[in-house]
């Protein structure tokens, strides 16, 4: 089986620019798709897509150390070697423990256990149109969200059949570890930004990361009429970087209203429906045009 699909990862750098809103619009406009919500710390797409959960999986995050009280002779070696100051008074603070296992190895009394932790769950779901949707929930306060993203994507992609043409990934904010994990084997990155100085600043940092990873990208400017000056600055930057603007969506209070009602914006607003349809057409062209060549952005 050859890879028959293209994978689009929706990112923004800054949170709250509309990644999930745009992802849900793309989800309802594409057919033969699989949707993955990779924002495992604040998964929201399922609130709009309302999927039926078909299967649930346990996620074992990193290992964590804990001291077996009966066996500990309070020699203090573990505390002295821990670079994360996670051990105090012969107890491991799970919020500080990074799971390096140094203490477990160094303990002369074998009094430290070092076990995998159940730190989240992920779900395989059916959408109304029969396509698959995956999302995950990291237990609040747990670490290793990047690992959960990787495992979630692995699960989703290993279950893909030949009829699937598109994999749409709703990514997390930032440019760190979970973002890196959500970009694995991406074909194209859709940057959702808005004309604010903060969002522009964050998009520029995100583009810096994409350049390191040699990934191609296009931009959707959400709330495009909010600030003409910054909007132009983004367009100018995109032009210099040779990144196409594939859509502009105006600011509309109805967006937040349909969010509150749990509806996709393209179902409640004709203009958004048309704009998103055009954007997807452009997106498909962009991906097709570069089918066989790796172009650095």
């Amino acid at each position: 089986m050859c890879k028959t699909y293209k994978q689009i990862v929706v990112l923004s750098g800054k949170g709250g620019t509309g990644k999930t809103t745009i992802s849900s619009a793309i989800a309802s406009l594409l057919s033969n798709k699989v949707i993955i919500d990779c924002d495992v710390e604040a998964a929201n797409l399922h609130l709009t897509l309302k999927p039926r959960v078909e299967n649930k999986y346990d996620f074992y995050g990193g290992k964590k150390a804990s001291i077996k009280q009966g066996k500990c002779i309070e020699c203090g070696i573990c505390e002295s070697i821990c670079n994360f100051n996670a051990i105090k008074n012969f107890q491991v603070n799970p919020y500080e423990c990074e799971g390096c296992g140094f203490c477990y190895r160094v303990c002369p009394e074998d009094a430290i256990s070092f076990e995998l932790q159940l730190t989240g769950r992920y779900y395989k779901c059916d959408l109304h149109d029969g396509s698959k949707f995956y999302y995950a929930r990291l237990e609040p306060g747990e670490t290793n969200s990047g690992k959960l993203v990787s495992e979630l994507k692995e699960k989703a992609i290993s279950n893909i059949n030949e009829s699937v043409k598109w994999v749409v990934v709703d990514g997390p904010p930032g440019i760190g570890c979970p973002v890196n994990a959500s970009l694995a084997s991406a074909d194209y990155v859709l940057i959702v930004t808005e004309p604010s100085k903060s969002a522009m600043n964050d998009s520029i940092r995100l583009i810096g990361l994409l350049r390191i990873l040699k990934l191609r990208a296009g931009i959707i400017i959400n709330k495009s009429d909010l600030n003409e000056e910054v909007c132009k600055a983004i367009e100018h930057y995109a032009f210099l970087e040779n990144i196409p603007i594939i859509g502009r969506l105006p600011f509309d209070e109805q967006v937040i209203q349909s969010l509150r009602e749990g509806k996709s914006i393209i179902d409640t607003n004709e203009l958004y429906y048309l704009k998103m349809k055009d954007a997807i057409k452009l997106l498909k062209n962009e991906i097709r045009d570069h089918k066989n060549k790796l172009v650095e952005i």
Partner: peptide, 14 residues
């Protein structure tokens, strides 16, 4: 703080 409920957010909140 950074967004989320994972390591970076915890580092700040705690």
């Amino acid at each position: 703080s950074p967004p989320g409920t994972s390591c970076p957010m915890i580092e700040v909140a705690k």
